[in-house]
Structures are given as structure tokens and as C-alpha cells.
């Protein structure tokens, strides 16, 4: 096996074309764990650490669009301007592993692995993010809901690389919460991200670790739109938050595994939805 170290995005895409079965290495926080568990045979590796184009993010203030490079680490999302633009993403980023992991792990890694427990993924779903991928011969932009195909399955072709994520800024409130059985450094047992869009008077909620993919709760969102005016700044009736939680819970599709039970996950994700709505409406 050999390690390829492209210096530019074009070089990386070219290597992806010519090196068969290459594994992509960015922060390595998923990949190296799998290597340790012998889950990978001996494959060539394309390491992205020198590809600076992937580590940048930009904000088009006119269009209200932010593009985050696939190799931007979580540490860059926790605080500062990105955190102000997308508070939910910042909250999700702060729950990723330890400071060391957050300095290495990337948004592209979460999308590449595409685990339903990926911490940033519910936020990307709730923000209607678009995933930009490229190969030597084409580029594509895929809504995140179409990009994630199943547990650890995505829409990426073998010769494609995740380049960036595009997210529109939203006027309103957004938040994220994650349940784990430890107070830090824990894989999500259930998570949720809620976005309240004050311009369109609508909400979007996406759930992690309670189904084969991230789950958008469309029916609960529509129900909420019918019973609550997000722009009214009126105190939310507790019964609305509770029913929202119950409806979100019903749309989850959790399983039993060694981290938790379906019963608890369904319960927890409802509580998270209720609390997020209460938090969001209190702002």
C-alpha cells in the first residue's frame, strides 16, 4: 500500500481517478479507529492534509450562503464567526469527542462515514444543507437528505470526493441537543436539531441515532406550523411543546443495540424535541 499526499484539489481528484480502491484520509477520527479494528484491508490511502482548498470556508453575505470546506475541523465551528452563523452546528461540534478529536475531525468525515450517529448530520438536515462533490470530470450538488442513503451509505461514487457543504443562513433560532450516557466524549444515543425559520414561519427538525438515516420529522413540522406562529414572540404553550415532542417521537425509527434501547431512544428524542422548541420559542 502507499500513501498519496495531493497538494491541490485537482491533484486529489486525479489520484482518486487513477488509484483503485483508494481510501480517503482527512482527520482520521473514524478511519484510524477502523484500521485499528482491522476493518480495512491493505488499500492505498489518499491523505488530504495538504489540500488547503478543503480547509476553508466562505460567506457570501449577499446571497446569504455559507460554504464550508469538507476538511474544516469541528474546532473551527465551535466558536467564532461560523458559530454565530450556525449556532446549532457549533453546539453539535462541541459534542464531538474531545478537543483533540475536534481539532482533527471534519464535516466531510461525518458525511463520508454517514453514520446515523454522526453528530453534525442532524444539523445539516435541519439546515437543508447541500453537499458539493467532485470528480475529475464533473461536479454535483446534492441535498443532504438525498446524499445520505442509509446507515453508513451515501451517494458518493468511488471517484468522487466531498468538497464542501453549502448552507443558507436562516433568520430565526436554531439549536442542537444530544443524549449520551456520559457527560462528554460519547457517541450519540439520540440527538436532535431544530431550526425555527422566522422568515418563512416554519420549522425543521432532524433526528440522529434513531433510524437508519437522519430523520426529518415533516409531519411534526407541519403540525407545528398549524398551531404556532414563530414570529409572534408569544410564550409557547407547554402543551404544544409536549405534543410536538410526542409527534417527533412517533416519527423516529430507533432500534435496540448495545448503546441503548429503542424504547429509550424514542422517549429521549421526544424530550429533546420538546425542550428544543421550548428553548427556541423562549428567545
Amino acid at each position: 500500500m502507499s500513501i498519496h499526499l495531493p497538494q491541490t484539489l485537482n491533484e486529489a481528484l486525479h489520484m482518486l481517478q487513477v488509484v483503485p480502491h483508494a481510501q480517503i484520509l482527512a482527520g482520521g477520527t473514524d478511519f484510524m479507529v477502523e484500521v485499528n479494528f482491522n476493518k480495512h484491508g491493505v488499500h492505498d490511502v489518499i491523505a488530504l492534509r495538504h489540500v488547503d482548498e478543503l480547509k476553508k470556508w466562505s460567506h457570501d453575505t449577499v446571497a446569504g450562503v455559507v460554504t464550508i470546506g469538507a476538511a474544516v475541523p469541528y474546532a473551527d465551528m465551535e466558536h467564532g464567526e461560523l458559530a454565530q452563523l450556525f449556532p446549532a452546528l457549533a453546539e453539535a461540534a462541541r459534542t464531538v469527542g474531545s478537543p483533540q478529536i475536534r481539532a482533527a475531525g471534519t464535516l466531510g468525515g461525518n458525511l463520508g462515514t454517514c453514520s446515523p450517529a454522526g453528530d453534525a448530520l442532524p444539523v445539516l438536515f435541519a439546515l437543508n444543507a447541500v453537499i458539493n462533490v467532485a470528480s475529475t470530470h464533473a461536479t454535483r450538488s446534492i441535498p443532504v437528505a438525498d446524499f445520505m442513503r442509509g446507515p453508513k451509505r451515501n451517494d458518493l461514487a468511488q471517484d468522487e470526493l466531498i468538497v464542501s457543504v453549502t448552507i443558507k443562513t436562516v433568520a430565526g433560532w436554531q439549536g442542537y441537543a444530544k443524549v449520551g450516557t456520559r457527560n462528554a466524549m460519547v457517541i450519540s444515543v439520540a440527538s436532535a436539531s431544530l431550526v425555527l425559520d422566522h422568515v418563512n414561519n416554519s420549522s425543521r427538525i432532524a433526528l440522529g441515532s434513531v433510524g437508519p438515516t437522519i430523520i426529518r420529522c415533516i409531519q411534526a413540522e407541519q403540525w407545528l406550523q398549524g398551531v404556532y406562529d414563530f414570529t409572534s414572540h408569544q410564550a409557547l404553550d407547554d402543551s404544544i411543546a409536549t405534543e410536538f415532542g410526542q409527534r417527533v417521537s412517533q416519527e423516529s425509527r430507533p432500534i435496540d443495540d448495545h448503546r441503548s434501547t429503542a424504547l429509550y431512544r424514542r422517549h429521549a428524542v421526544g424530550v429533546l424535541a420538546k425542550r428544543l422548541l421550548q428553548r427556541g420559542s423562549a428567545q
Binding site: 453546539e91 462541541r94 442542537y176 441537543a177 443524549v179 457527560n183 462528554a184 424530550v271
Partner: peptide, 16 residues
Amino acid sequence: ELSLPGGSGRTADRRH
């Protein structure tokens, strides 16, 4: 927020 049960997951508020 980190001192509450749930820690970095920000699951709880004071009243819970």
C-alpha cells in the same frame, strides 16, 4: 451548561 447532567450534549436546562 457543562455542569448540568447531559454535559456537552446540552440536553437539560436548570428546571429539569
